[in-house]
């Protein structure tokens, strides 16, 4: 299928009727839509998904869900989507129309099967008509009676146009989808889950397996006794009731998320007001905290004051520290000298005692007395020998005077000197610094307290602060409520699993007639053939996905192509997760180790995801037109050229790129011109955007 033309009428900044022709050819498959930031490229993408899916936009992916949540709810999104100038002119409708060609349809009573049907779909909203938007589908040559209900139309879009599950691969922002590379296995599985179903065309086979299972269950039920049948009916009702409850909870969760988003945007407004007009950026609950802080600082101030007073007692000594040191030194020398004198006297005394005892104490020599002159001679000699042997003690210092101090007085001076040495002037300075800092802190905090107290007297500030607190309380409650909903949902799912198991056991026990047994056996063969087929297809699709993704990455990424930095991605492995939970994709380096996707740069992530998207689309059983916002996202100059010359020209039969003049300036446009079927420029004046044929003429315009 292809989209030939789109008409936007009064949608958001698109004033009046805006027609854009998207016809492409085999050689020229690209349509380029240039627009500066804020001119409406993203809203152009939004208009298409709104036209196709209406309220179900939120189910496409988180990005589109946020677009709805920005306005609070779907009805508000609709109301805010009417062009603001049109509102002033008294008009009340906006619409989006998509004209489709090359549409493939199966044979019905109304038509032959074929792949060149044309159809037009239109979604319109009138803000003066309460209720939903109107959704209309017209197929050339087929009566409108085909679509009797809204569900018929939704099914038609999902089965023959672009399935909702595939929309994330068809309408996307190339920069934002790079974040898929950061998803957990479970999240990645669910994002890629649709790739194995709708997109690869296996959903029809799985649908038939499901219908065949319903058929075999039906055969058994027909043969059940009245009592067993009653049990089956009760169990099935239980399952149905649980499914209803789960659906109800899911819609409650959606409402909860929408309410949360709305309240969060209110909080942002309150905060903006308070930042602008309030003297503070605190909330009232922090006032008590500030009082507490002030009390603590005052206590600290008092402590420092006491410490300073203690220190100030020794200030005179500090000032006289030099003199005190001199006295201390003098006392030390004086003590040394008196010690030496004492030692000298002791030695002289002992020598005299020795001489005295030598000459005057018995026994005496038998040959007569020693003469006095000899005694003098030997006494002098002994004195000299003692001096030689024990060393002569000499005074080293000549002190001019001596302090006449008692021992306790000397001790006091030494102690005072040591104390001053320890409590050096650094401590004084530090204490004074701390004291000043605490004083400043007290002044600051008192200023803030004063502002808060004055705010507390400002009624508007009080109102906004109260509203903000109330909104924060609501958010907490909503988060709690959402958690409770999710728990209930999980419990119901588990309960249904058990009920289904017991139902299967019950059905298997029923004995059936010979004729029904034949049918059961035959139906089971059909089921087995289809299950084998689906399982083999999933395996082969996985291996094709691995190969195609890897080849594409090799094409696009220089690092892989020229082998520099080693082979940091040498292989890709895609595995189907159990329980139909989608795909798990792993990257391996040349040593066979897993390369974590989060280790890739933003540009590399974009290349990896773009390669994966292309691989998925190449395996799809339908040809989709592809719409890409920010097509060159985080890429550098050389990779941009690869994308423009090799990736986009081969991505699909119809590729619509929405770029800024920074991404695809005129110089790059020349590069890609050979592939471009049509180029348009979004022009904006007075907040109104119009679509004009042509492209940026220069970097500036």
């Amino acid at each position: 299928m292809k989209i030939d033309k789109i008409i936007l009428t009064n949608f958001r900044q698109y004033y009046g009727e805006n027609v854009i022709n998207l016809m492409t050819t085999k050689e020229k498959n690209i349509v380029l839509l240039g627009g500066k930031t804020g001119y409406g490229k993203t809203n152009f993408l939004l208009s298409l998904v709104w036209c196709l899916y209406g309220e179900d936009i939120a189910k496409i992916d988180e990005g589109f869900k946020r677009e709805i949540q920005k306005d609070g709810s779907y009805p508000k999104f609709l109301k805010s989507s009417l062009n603001w100038d049109i509102v002033r002119e008294g008009k009340s409708k906006f619409s989006v129309e998509i004209f489709i060609s090359d549409l493939e349809l199966p044979e019905t009573r109304e038509n032959e099967s074929g792949n060149n049907y044309k159809c037009r779909i239109k979604r319109e909203f009138n803000i003066n008509s309460p209720g939903d938007d109107t959704f209309d589908i017209k197929i050339d040559g087929i009566k409108n009676s085909m679509f009797q209900t809204l569900d018929d139309k939704i099914n038609f879009v999902n089965d023959y146009l672009i399935p909702l599950e595939a929309a994330k691969f068809v309408f996307f922002d190339a920069e934002k989808i790079a974040s898929w590379a950061e998803l957990s296995t479970k999240e990645e599985g669910s994002v890629l889950n649709d790739a194995l179903g709708k997109l690869l065309g296996l959903d029809v086979y799985e649908g038939l397996i499901n219908d065949l299972n319903i058929y075999t269950d039906g055969l058994r039920k027909e043969s059940a006794t009245a009592q067993v049948r009653q049990t089956i009916i009760t169990t099935e009702k239980g399952i149905e009731l649980n499914i209803e409850k789960i659906e109800h909870l899911e819609s409650e969760i959606l409402i909860n998320e929408s309410d949360t988003a709305k309240i969060k945007s209110e909080i942002v407004k309150y905060e903006a007001f308070l930042v602008q007009y309030s003297n503070r950026s605190f909330n009232t609950s922090s006032l008590d905290e500030l009082y507490k802080q002030r009390d603590e600082l005052r206590k600290k101030e008092k402590d420092l004051e006491n410490k300073f007073n203690e220190l100030s007692e020794i200030i005179p000594f500090v000032l006289a520290a030099g003199k005190l040191e001199e006295v201390n030194e003098h006392i030390k020398l004086q003590d040394e000298e008196s010690y030496l004198v004492e030692k000298q006297n002791e030695l002289i005394e002992k020598n005299s005692e020795f001489i005295e005892k030598l000459f005057n104490n018995p026994p005496f020599p038998t040959d007569g007395d020693i003469s006095f002159s000899k005694k003098i001679f030997y006494a002098d000699k002994a004195k000299r020998i003692v001096e030689d042997v024990f060393g002569k003690i000499e005074k080293t210092n000549e002190l001019e005077f001596e302090h006449d101090l008692s021992k306790s007085e000397k001790d006091l001076i030494v102690e005072t000197f040591n104390h001053i040495q320890k409590q050096s002037k650094d401590i004084f300075e530090q204490t004074i610094d701390n004291f000043n800092r605490v004083k400043n802190d007290i002044t600051e905090i008192e200023k803030v307290i004063k502002n808060i107290e004055s705010d507390l007297e400002d009624e508007e500030i009080i109102e906004y602060t109260t509203n903000k607190k109330e909104a924060e309380r609501k958010i907490e409650k909503l988060i709690e409520e959402k958690g409770s909903f999710q728990n209930q949902k999980e419990n119901l799912k588990r309960e249904n699993e058990k009920l289904n198991q017991s139902l299967q056991v019950l059905l298997k026990r029923i004995s059936v007639s010979e004729q029904k047994k034949k049918k059961l056996d035959k139906a089971n063969l059909y089921i087995r053939a289809l299950e084998d087929f689906v399982s083999a297809q999933k395996k082969s699709k996985c291996s094709a996905l691995e190969q195609t993704t890897f080849n594409e990455m090799n094409q696009l990424m220089h690092k892989l192509r020229d082998g520099s930095n080693g082979k940091f991605i040498a292989a890709i492995k895609a595995e189907a997760l159990p329980n139909n939970d989608g795909l798990k994709i792993s990257l391996f380096d040349s040593d066979g180790n897993i390369t974590p996707k989060e280790s890739l740069s933003m540009g590399e992530k974009q290349i990896y995801i773009s390669s994966l998207v292309k691989a998925i689309l190449s395996l799809a059983v339908q040809d989709f037109p592809i719409f890409i916002d920010t097509p060159l996202g985080r890429l550098d100059h050389e990779h941009i050229n690869n994308f423009l010359l090799s990736y986009y020209p081969n991505l699909a039969n119809q590729v619509v790129l929405m770029a800024t003049n920074n991404e695809i300036p005129p110089s790059r446009f020349k590069l890609v011109r050979g592939f471009v079927a049509n180029a348009y420029l979004l022009e904006s004046s007075k907040n109104q955007t119009k679509i004009k044929q042509g492209y940026f003429q220069s970097y500036e315009n």
Binding site: V204, Y205, L208, Y215, K518, K519, K522, A523, L525, Y526, R528, A529, L530, D532, F533, A536, Q537
Partner: peptide, 29 residues
């Protein structure tokens, strides 16, 4: 591929191409 799986499981490929049970049983008889 589907035809291959049908052959393997002795199921009529045309019948599956549902994408019938009584007819299939009758044809066997």
């Amino acid at each position: 591929e589907l035809e291959k799986e049908c052959r393997k499981n002795q199921v009529s490929f045309i019948s599956v191409e549902l994408l019938e049970i009584e007819n299939s049983i009758e044809n066997e008889n």
